[in-house]
């Protein structure tokens, strides 16, 4: 998909002494990572003042804050690389639904607390592995981002691990809810590791690592946690996909409409 067609006034493409040839691919890849963080952060914002305890309101707002921070860094860089000069806010607040490239996992409705924990478990284990890999990439700005972000998502992983075990080994009801939550979420985890032409080119040129080879380590780690919780990792019979090419769930439209509502009500506003 084109990432530029909603800003027709600006001609895409690198200036003469501008970014390297991999720039459009890298821009799209960072847009995807940024959208993952933004959309998951937005979902977690919906929990605040509704969590099971005040301590959890605090924990979830802390995680959301980190994720929005990751989104800002990634989207800002994507906007610089794709030649359109769009800012983090241009990207978050002016794209229509079909231009968002997050994995469907991140937009799944919060559901009950167990569903949110299952979604956090899948995402945070993936994010730790991917940001660790990114911390070793050749691009110094991205490597620095990976090194910082991996420490933050390691806390999110710890939070998800603890709750998975607590719910799995808590009461009959919590174990049942956690089991259903894993089954609900698991078909959406595959998309995080999908590799398309863009990623193959980026990995082949050594620009950034592909997430595909990390899937095995991810499965090993989450299996350890889920087994420790007295539960079994589901083996889904289908894999959800479409988010990376802008084909989202029906629940995604309202999420984006809400995100963008104030900004769209005040055209030309400064914030």
């Amino acid at each position: 998909m084109s990432t530029t067609s909603d800003v027709p006034a600006v001609r895409p493409g690198p200036p003469p002494d501008g970014p390297p040839p991999a720039a459009p691919d890298l821009a799209l890849h960072l847009l995807r990572l940024g959208d993952d963080a933004l959309v998951l952060g937005q979902r977690l914002c919906q929990w605040i003042t509704r969590a099971p305890t005040v301590d959890e309101d605090l924990a979830l707002s802390n995680i959301a804050l980190d994720l929005i921070g990751h989104a800002r860094a990634l989207l800002a860089r994507a906007g610089r690389l794709d030649g359109t000069g769009r800012t983090e806010d241009d990207l978050a607040y002016t794209r229509p639904e079909r231009r968002f490239t997050n994995a469907l996992l991140t937009e799944l409705p919060n559901g009950d607390f167990a569903t949110t924990v299952a979604r956090q478990l899948a995402y945070s284990h993936y994010a730790v592995l991917y940001y660790e890999a990114l911390a070793h990439c050749a691009d110094p700005e991205l490597a620095a981002f990976g090194a910082r972000a991996r420490k933050e998502v390691a806390f999110h992983r710890l939070h998800a691990d603890r709750w998975t075990v607590t719910l799995g080994r808590g009461t009959e009801e919590s174990a049942r809810r956690m089991r259903h939550a894993l089954e609900r979420v698991w078909p959406y985890t595959g998309e995080l590791f999908e590799e398309d032409e863009v990623l193959r080119r980026l990995a082949a040129s050594g620009t950034v690592p592909s997430p595909a080879p990390l899937r095995e380590a991810w499965l090993h780690r989450v299996t350890g946690v889920v087994t420790g919780a007295g539960l079994t990792v589901p083996t889904p019979t289908w894999t959800a996909r479409g988010g990376r090419s802008g084909l989202h769930t029906e629940e995604f439209g309202p999420l984006i409409a809400e995100l963008q509502s104030v900004r769209r009500q005040f055209p030309g506003g400064t914030w």
Binding site: L38, Q46, I48, D57, L58, L65, R72, E88, L259, R263
Partner: peptide, 25 residues
């Protein structure tokens, strides 16, 4: 929180609401 009109303002508001939970505790 879900409607803050820039990502900067969203971050600031998240930090504030988080502080309030902390103060309560």
């Amino acid at each position: 929180l879900t409607r803050a009109p820039s990502l900067h303002r969203k971050s600031v508001l998240l930090a504030k609401v988080q502080d309030e939970a902390g103060h309560g505790l």
